[in-house]
Amino acid sequence: MKSLQSESSVSKQSTARAVVIAIDGTSGSGKSTIAKALARHYGFVHVDTGAMYRAVTWHCLQHGADCNDAAAVVRAMREMKSDFRLCDGRIVMFINGADPGESLRSEAVTQNVSLVARIPEVRAWLVAQQRALLRFGSLVMEGRDIGSVVFPDTPFKFYVDADPAVRAARRASDGYADQVTQRDQLDTTRKVSPLVVSPGACLVDTGKNTPPQTLALVLAELKRRGL
Rank of each mutant, 00 (worst) to 15 (best):
P152W: 09
F151L: 10
F151I: 09
T154C: 01
D153P: 02
L126D: 11
S138H: 11
M141D: 03
I146E: 05
R131I: 12
R135N: 11
L133V: 02
K157L: 04
A128V: 11
P164A: 05
V160S: 04
E121S: 00
V140A: 03
R144Q: 06
V160M: 12
E142G: 01
L139E: 12
G137L: 09
R131A: 15
A132K: 13
T154E: 00
R123W: 14
F136L: 12
A124M: 11
R144K: 09
M141K: 05
L133G: 00
L139C: 11
A124P: 03
E121P: 01
V127D: 02
P152T: 12
A132P: 07
S148Y: 06
F156W: 13
V122Q: 04
F158K: 03
V122C: 05
D161A: 08
D153R: 15
V149N: 11
P152Y: 09
G137A: 11
Q129D: 13
Q129F: 10
V160K: 03
S138R: 14
G143E: 06
G147K: 10
K157T: 06
S138L: 13
S148F: 14
Y159M: 00
L134R: 15
R135W: 03
R123F: 08
A124G: 07
V127E: 03
A128E: 15
R144L: 10
A162K: 00
D145F: 09
D161M: 06
Q130L: 04
Q130G: 02
E142T: 02
G137T: 13
F158H: 02
R123A: 12
A124E: 15
V150T: 15
V149T: 15
V150M: 10
P152H: 09
G137N: 08
L134M: 07
S138P: 10
V150G: 10
P164G: 07
L126T: 08
A132R: 15
G137H: 14
D153C: 08
